[in-house]
Design a protein around this nucleic acid. Structure first.
Lengths: 196, 196, 196, 196
DNA sequence: TATGAATGAGCCTTCATTCAT
DNA sequence: TATGAATGAAGGCTCATTCAT
């Protein structure tokens, strides 16, 4: 990795939690200057403008979430364990996988009426997450873990929505009481589809 | 209502959808000037500063949601009908009760890391909404509509989370496909608790 | 004139010589701040952006040239006297009617490859100046002052070109030696068309 | 020519039309980077700063004008033919000998109030051009081509001024209508000084 | 010689807010 | 109450220039 690429990456990493917490509009380039200790002009050496940086930050935060999940999934064997791991990772809002909280809600809600490019990025992430859940269930069905008649597509959407809705509740409340209940309920729904 | 109070109200109404769509940080007082056709100074006659206006707008948008729901509930008789009405109203994201979409997610996600006052307002709204759902179910149980052992507190949280999570999915996707599926699933869950 | 209009006019007047001397690109809004002792934001209360101010300044400088000429023309009786007065006013580059020198050359040469709007303004000024010269001669012919066969349209162009070319020579040299010779030659050309 | 000198020359050639069109102040070093495909630092290897490059570019453009004229003069025999050739070359503003138009007006008008060094360069060019015209006429007189009493010094100034003034008119108008009329008039003036 | 990352002053513009009228 | 001129800090971005590689 060239020095330039390293700096670019460094900036993205430092900027990522700031954008995720404050939002894109409320984050100033000077915030990024402070966080990186770089001069104003340096940021523009690596990013054409704030929008480009913001887009990269969105990608970075989405990827970070995926990585954190992947790491946790390493010790998950069965499909049920994978789904449970997903729930555990994502509902841990007091120590969220992505600093600042789920970037899909954060950036999605800011961008939906104002930033089509980022809206599109988030939409893809939301869809692929549901797809991932659905695929895990499908594998579980194929493996004889889950009932074959489980509507996995529908449940993927329900599970994703419950988790994200729970994150909203929890972050605004500042505690994980409700999100934990939601996680528990989800696990019961999953267990109820188990065979044997 | 004095003339001053009327103007104040007028400003709030015009400002409400703008703040809800663009977010507080991204909304400039000049946006409100344009929308109200009022002069710069006039806004400050009625609101000490932008934060005060924003707080009023948040309240207004929350109240607007409640009013829209109440109006729809007028023709709902049973508890089941009330829950179904809630679902119908709130999941109609292509024609949302509050222009710009659910203010609980919009302002909640912007404020959670930056604005404790508004975070607090949203938290109360979220809790009272869950409480309202829970109360409706309790009434239904008492009326013999629903199974007495239904965990109404938990279901209220699940229902609220599913709806809000569904709104996130739908607004970012720009369509109501998934939120409609979520509404349907919720109605089935409710129906499955019906007696007789 | 409202206070706002007065300030707007004040800004234009202070900005006019600066733009004319330094050029549009090389003039910073901070130069106008210094000259007007106004705060940065005040300039933008009255002018949407620098381009709008620049366009107004161009108009102002063109008008200033016309006014200065008109004032001098008050004591000119015959067509010949009018043409001589024009020559005297315009060739006095050490005390130019418009501070910074002829705005038609200054802005015309800056704008020709970069600013179509201002290029257009200057073009109109150049054409109407030639038209004015031509009209004066026509009046002189009608009044029996000049030979009826004088090609007044062609001479107007020649006269304008000579004067403007002379201004270029003089401003770059920093003296009025050559422009005075040009003025003298022009007066001879005019006198040679006189009857009686 | 060393490699360094070649690069230096290459930069000047690429930069010359840009400075001539946009002006010195409005031309950024990054424009030169784009035009040369060289890295930022490379430009500073060959030119201490922008002013040095600008000065070289001015010289280059002035020389380019001279070369273009010399080339055209190769097929001119008599003094009259030389003067006519000068007129033809310089008034061809739709295909100017120096891309961007006459550098004497372009740089002269930008520099007169702001850049003494370049103002001085242009002044010398203007004076030597008039001197050249004057010398050609003198030669024509000596050769018996022109009337001995022709005031060649004065005519050189008039001719230069008319041409330059005509260029201003033409460039701002975006056509060669008037400059062609000026060229024609100049040729008649010259012809009227011919002997037999 | 050539590169391109880094710098920080400076540019145009926007913003929330104040205040005289 | 309403106006809109005035303010100056702050925002995004560009620029000429430097310097380690």
């Amino acid at each position: 990795m060239s020095k330039g690429e390293a700096t670019r990456q460094f900036i993205i990493e430092k900027a990522a939690p700031i954008f995720n917490k404050k939002g894109i509009a409320a984050t100033a380039m000077s915030d990024i200057m402070d966080a990186t200790k770089l001069a104003k002009g340096s940021l523009y050496v690596h990013f054409e403008n704030k929008d480009v940086l913001a887009a990269e930050v969105v990608d970075h935060n989405l990827n970070l979430g995926r990585k954190k999940l992947q790491a946790a999934l390493n010790i998950a064997g069965t499909s049920k364990e994978k789904l449970f791991t997903y729930i555990d990772v994502v509902t841990d809002i007091l120590n969220p996988p992505v600093p600042g909280g789920c970037p899909m809600i954060n950036f999605g809600m800011e961008a939906d009426d104002t930033n089509p490019e980022i809206k599109q990025k988030i939409n893809q992430a939301i869809e692929s997450t549901q797809q991932w859940i659905s695929d895990i269930i499908k594998q579980g069905i194929k493996a004889g873990e889950f009932r074959p008649d489980w509507n996995h597509k529908e449940f993927a959407t329900i599970m994703f929505a419950m988790v994200e809705g729970g994150i909203v509740i929890g972050r605004v409340a500042g505690n994980n009481t409700k999100i934990k209940a939601i996680g528990k309920a989800l696990k019961q729904m999953i267990s109820s589809q188990q065979l044997t």
